[in-house]
């Protein structure tokens, strides 16, 4: 397959300044995303997984330039958007969109859901008259399995799942090339999760869009992703094809995450190695030196405490950033 790169992210860093201390006199820097490089192929679905607070949302927003990155570069459809001024960026915004984590917060409470879905149509001058506008909104509602007659209602009249579908319909309005779904299904119950994930897979099939699918839940990401990037404390620690990652996790953190995912087969369940993580996820304020995972890692050695490992291809496009794994010191 000779796929095209739709987005190329190099050494992306996103730091936040916060005021520590009661009187806000101690400035602290949150390393929300640290040195992330990732090339996203046109038409693929890439899953981003990791624990709460590891920088998934920040990453998703930074690559769409909802934030101004602290460092690194982002290239989208051949254009460097890292420092692109907002006015110029607006031309590209219809091509890369983001679906927010919280469907209760992302819809304007004083606008009907129909006009919310139609907003990108107007902003990007995609319809010529009212008739076209309404027709397109009805189409978008049908794509996400919502009755178009609900377009006249307000967000508070909808359930979480319906709101999420409204948000998805809005994201599709401007015919984007790339959509970042930030925990698109995490707020929903399991049966609805499956339905929305299938719906998204279906839409992708038809409309040929590239997805970045963010979730803290590996079992959700598994179904939809072609490749998966595992985040830990703002860094990518493992990157691989989805099946390969599940069959053969290389990073101790990924192994630990996978042991948290139940396997339906009790025989396999018994056979797998269980890795327990010690302690809490460290704070992204003053992250540990060396490998970010070393304070919790049972295999950490001296080098892990001083030098951060780089992603190395271990074959089959399976990349891992772990000295122990790269040196073959991990139990199989």
């Amino acid at each position: 397959m000779d796929q095209q790169i739709i987005m190329k992210i190099d050494d992306l860093r996103m730091y936040f300044n916060t005021n520590g201390g009661v009187f806000g006199n101690k400035r602290k820097i949150v390393h929300a995303v640290d040195d992330v490089s990732l090339s996203i192929m046109e038409g693929e679905t890439i899953g981003i997984v990791g624990e709460s607070g590891c920088g998934k949302t920040t990453f998703g927003r930074a690559i769409l330039r909802l934030y101004k990155p602290t460092g690194g570069s982002i290239e989208f459809m051949g254009q460097n958007i890292t420092d692109m001024p907002e006015r110029k960026l607006r031309q590209l915004r219809s091509k890369m969109v983001y679906v927010f984590q919280d469907p209760y917060e992302s819809l304007d409470p004083r606008k009907t859901v129909g006009s919310t879905v139609g907003e990108p149509l107007i902003i990007n001058h995609l319809v010529r008259n009212k008739k076209e506008y309404e027709k397109r909104i009805a189409e978008l509602f049908e794509i996400v399995n919502l009755d178009p007659s609900m377009a006249n209602r307000y967000p508070h009249e909808f359930s979480g799942g319906q709101r999420q579908r409204v948000a998805i319909a809005r994201s599709l309005a401007s015919d984007p090339k790339l959509i970042v779904f930030d925990e698109a299904v995490s707020a929903l119950d399991v049966s609805l999760q499956a339905r929305i994930v299938n719906l998204l897979a279906d839409i992708k099939e038809r409309l040929k869009i590239t997805y970045i699918f963010i979730s803290h839940d590996l079992s959700v990401v598994k179904h939809i992703s072609d490749r998966i990037a595992v985040f830990y404390l703002g860094r990518v620690v493992e990157l691989s094809e989805a099946d390969e990652l599940y069959k053969n996790p290389l990073h101790p953190y990924t192994k630990a995450l996978l042991t948290a995912v139940p396997i339906p087969d009790p025989f396999l369940e018994d056979k797998r190695d269980v890795i327990f993580m010690d302690g809490e996820i460290p704070s992204p304020i003053n992250p540990p030196k060396g490998c970010p995972f070393h304070p919790r890692c049972p295999f950490a050695t001296d080098i892990c405490r001083t030098d951060a490992p780089q992603l190395v291809d271990m074959g089959h496009q399976h990349l891992v950033a772990c000295y122990a794994s790269q040196e073959g010191r991990l139990p199989k």
């Binding site: 607006r90 969109v97 919280d102 917060e105 304007d108 990108p120 809005r170 401007s174």
Partner: peptide, 13 residues
């Protein structure tokens, strides 16, 4: 609010 950020994200002026 997220819904204002959503406007910016979709390219609103």
């Amino acid at each position: 609010s997220d819904y204002i950020l959503a406007e910016k994200m979709h390219g609103a002026g």
